[in-house]
């Protein structure tokens, strides 16, 4: 039997079993063999593939020291002489997903490695990485691990054998936005008429040219006269009064809330806290200005650099928020701001 295909697996600090948000700064590490979800992945690979090493990095560390982290990881990966890199799956974790995409793109471009990962289709990592790698669509949460791993393993083995894959909707990965020519039994005109007839009969048909779905909002025009403008503060970092009177959720928030900041010169840590459940909030609970810069805006207001700060602070939690829901919050907040005559917004995110 041929040698098993050599695979390196990338994980974040959580899946590598090092720790949660408090270990977000975990530096790059590696170990021989599979770790965490790599054990089940190894089972799915069977005898044909072998996870020769696992590499990892804390999600915050990855993004804050991106260039160093990526080059360190590439060095570790290259040293194992793998045929394929597998990253994640990252489900709907935004930082982990973008880390998998950034590392995957670098490995594909610099090491010429095929890369397989798994993500929830709305993970921002999908847009960032789909052109350079094969992204298996997964559930939003890690409960989808069992369904994702066999598909990822199958794609990885085929790529590792040097096979080329068919279209994503058949092979089980998200479309990469590239097309490959092939000879079909029917010419284009015949296929087109068949499609048209199916459509007229109300039957399902598959377009050969899906139109891209662009949701580009043209940038709003700039504020002409800041010293007379009304500015509002919006944040998705879950800053709420102590005791969280409205019960804002720490993830998958179902609402946005607003809190009166008129007459407040500062956000005292005794009065305000953060309920965001997607990162270590210790630093912003020590000083909420580290995410909502009320102190500085009051200074600028007194100096006449801005007209006035709107009396309400708008708050939600952006942690694993479904896009459709975030859009609805945005529309509702926008309507509220427009009615209040707000001319510009400072929005802080994590």
């Amino acid at each position: 039997m041929a040698e098993p295909i050599r695979i390196v697996h990338y994980l974040n600090q959580f899946f590598a079993g090092i720790g949660g948000e408090e270990k977000g700064d975990e530096p790059v590490g590696h170990r021989g063999g599979p770790v965490g979800p790599g054990l089940a992945l190894q089972e799915a690979l069977g005898a044909e593939g072998r996870i020769v090493a696992t590499v990892w990095c804390g999600d915050n560390r990855f993004h804050e020291m991106r260039e160093t982290v990526v080059s360190d990881l590439l060095r570790l990966i290259e040293a194992e002489a793998p045929a394929v890199l597998i990253a994640g799956p990252a489900f709907n974790a935004g930082r982990y997903g973008t880390a998998c995409a950034i590392l995957g793109s670098a490995a594909a471009q610099k090491l010429d490695l095929p890369v397989v990962t798994g993500m929830f289709p709305e993970n921002p990592g999908v847009e960032a990485g789909r052109r350079d790698m094969y992204i298996v669509p997964t559930a939003a949460a890690a409960t989808g691990m069992r369904a994702a791993l066999p598909v990822m393993a199958r794609l990885a083995l085929r790529l590792g054998r040097g096979e080329s894959l068919g279209p994503g909707d058949i092979e089980g990965y998200l479309p990469r936005g590239s097309r490959r020519n092939f000879f079909d039994a029917e010419v284009g005109a015949e296929r087109m008429v068949a499609m048209l007839l199916a459509r007229l009969r109300g039957e399902p048909f598959r377009t050969e040219l899906p139109l891209p779905r662009f949701d580009r909002v043209p940038p709003a025009p700039p504020v002409r006269d800041l010293p007379r403008a009304r500015l509002a503060l919006v944040t998705e970092a879950g800053i709420v009064p102590q005791g969280n009177p409205d019960g804002l959720e720490s993830w998958r928030a179902t609402k946005w809330v607003k809190y009166r900041i008129a007459g407040l010169d500062a956000l005292a840590p005794e009065q305000f806290t953060s309920v965001h459940g997607g990162f270590d909030t210790a630093r912003i609970r020590q000083d909420p200005h580290r995410i909502v810069p009320l102190d500085v805006l009051r200074e600028l207001e007194r100096e006449g650099r801005i007209g006035r700060l709107h009396e309400d602070l708008y708050v939600t939690v952006g942690n694993v928020a479904p896009v459709a829901r975030a859009e609805r919050f945005g529309r509702e907040i926008a309507e509220d701001l427009r009615k209040a005559g707000v001319q510009a917004v400072l929005l802080t995110a994590t």
């Binding site: 043209p218 940038p219 919050f329 926008a334």
Partner: peptide, 12 residues
């Protein structure tokens, strides 16, 4: 969220 606010013409 920010894009929806921009959509009504308020810069973010």
């Amino acid at each position: 969220m920010a894009k929806e606010i921009e959509r009504v013409g308020i810069p973010v």
